[in-house]
């Protein structure tokens, strides 16, 4: 239940062992399922095949057009949500009253699964990149605007008072008090916004699209090319992880 704190170090080693063993068991079960236990190749491809397909995908560069489309949609979506979210959030944060009017409203809309708007966007903007950009921008707008409000709207009163007492003017107040106080919160919101924009772009490509990384997975699924689909999924997950890592790094750098 509660092990002894003194045994911390050996525990770390054994937990690594458990993790490795767990991974090995999963891989082994996967391999045996496809070779010995007769699970359909269409439902579960052989891991070795998947590996070959993954190498082929990366080596052939066939992913580049889809990646370009997805990244383009992501850039459009994030540019819109970032500029609108930070601007609107900052304007709202300037007044206690506006915060009390808008913050609950925005939080309430954010609680709805906004993916529901996708059919409306497809009707309005078609199956091309525009509907994906719109959805990505809509979904990522909310964490950005809410964190901008939280960052600029809830700066410690004592810091503001202290700066005023030392004679800071409005520009100095912004530069030396508001901005440094708000920046970590705003950046965290931007990082979150980036992640949800990326996910919603891929999601909308999966649901209704002609192109993009998400669409390519669906394409492979519909052709029952499961081994390549698995490989492509791994590839897309790696790209998502890479982009998120890049953004986290930028956030970490920008903070200090």
């Amino acid at each position: 239940m509660n092990g002894d704190g003194r045994k911390n170090a050996p525990h770390r080693l054994s937990s690594r062992l458990v993790q490795v063993a767990f991974l090995a068991i999963v891989l082994l079960a996967w391999f045996l399922a496809t070779t010995r236990w007769g699970v359909s190749r269409i439902l579960l491809p052989n891991p070795v095949n998947v590996w070959h397909q993954l190498i082929d995908i990366v080596a052939s560069g066939a992913f580049i057009p889809d990646l370009r489309i997805t990244l383009g949609e992501l850039a459009g979506a994030f540019a819109i949500s970032m500029s609108l979210g930070v601007t609107i959030g900052y304007l709202i944060s300037r007044s206690r009253y506006l915060i009390r009017v808008f913050e609950p409203l925005l939080a309430a809309i954010y609680a709805i699964p906004i993916i529901l708007f996708l059919p409306l966007y497809v009707l309005l903007l078609g199956l091309g990149p525009a509907s994906k950009i719109a959805l990505g921008a809509t979904i990522s707008f909310f964490p950005i605007v809410l964190s901008t409000i939280a960052g600029f709207g809830y700066v410690d009163r004592r810091l503001v008072t202290a700066a005023r007492s030392m004679g800071a003017n409005n520009i100095q107040m912004f530069r030396y008090v508001l901005l440094p106080a708000a920046l970590p919160v705003v950046l965290a919101g931007l990082r979150l916004g980036f992640t949800v924009a990326l996910l919603s772009v891929i999601a909308s490509e999966t649901i209704a699209s002609f192109a993009g990384l998400g669409h390519h997975i669906v394409d492979l699924a519909e052709n029952m090319d499961t081994a390549r689909m698995f490989a492509y999924i791994v590839f897309v997950i790696a790209i998502v992880a890479f982009l998120n890592a890049v953004v986290s790094t930028i956030e970490g750098r920008a903070r200090w």
């Binding site: 439902l43 997975i217 999924i233 897309v236 998502v240």
Partner: peptide, 14 residues
């Protein structure tokens, strides 16, 4: 933390 949306086609397949 994985982007689960990528595996949605597998769920429907299975």
């Amino acid at each position: 933390g994985l982007p689960q949306i990528t595996i949605l086609p597998i769920f429907v397949l299975v």
